[in-house]
């Protein structure tokens, strides 16, 4: 199979950034205040994806300083992702409607 990764640069990157920014804006804009804390925590989890970038950087490290910084990067990124997930999940688990089902 002939496949090479597309290099996302210039306007393509700009389009991605713009559309992603609108997506984030739209999702949060309609959220009831009761979910603000879990949502902040949830978005905190999502930028834990940085661990993937740190992994790439560490795997491509070719000197000791790079390895040290890369190690720290993966460590911190993994903490961000795992911690963000656990606390968000714990919070959302507790939200329950009363015995009668609410009409939305």
């Amino acid at each position: 199979m002939d496949y090479t990764t597309t290099i996302l640069t210039g306007f393509v990157a700009l389009y991605i950034f713009m559309l992603a920014a609108f997506t984030g804006f739209e999702i949060i804009g309609r959220v009831p205040a009761i979910l603000h804390t879990p949502l902040m925590s949830g978005s905190n989890f999502i930028h834990g994806i940085v661990v993937v970038g740190a992994l790439w950087a560490l795997l491509n490290a070719s000197s000791l300083p790079e390895q040290i910084i890369g190690f720290l990067g993966v460590l911190l990124g993994a903490g961000n992702a795992a911690g963000g997930y656990v606390v968000t999940e714990r919070m959302l688990q507790m939200f329950k409607p009363s015995t009668k089902t609410p009409k939305e």
């Binding site: 996302l8 990157a13 991605i16 950034f17 992603a20 920014a21 609108f22 997506t23 984030g24 804006f25 999702i27 949060i28 949502l39 978005s43 905190n44 999502i46 930028h47 994806i49 940085v50 993937v52 970038g53």
Partner: peptide, 11 residues
């Protein structure tokens, strides 16, 4: 990273 980061950045 670009998409997740920017979604969180704006949200």
């Amino acid at each position: 990273l670009m998409i997740a980061g920017m979604v969180v950045g704006s949200a």
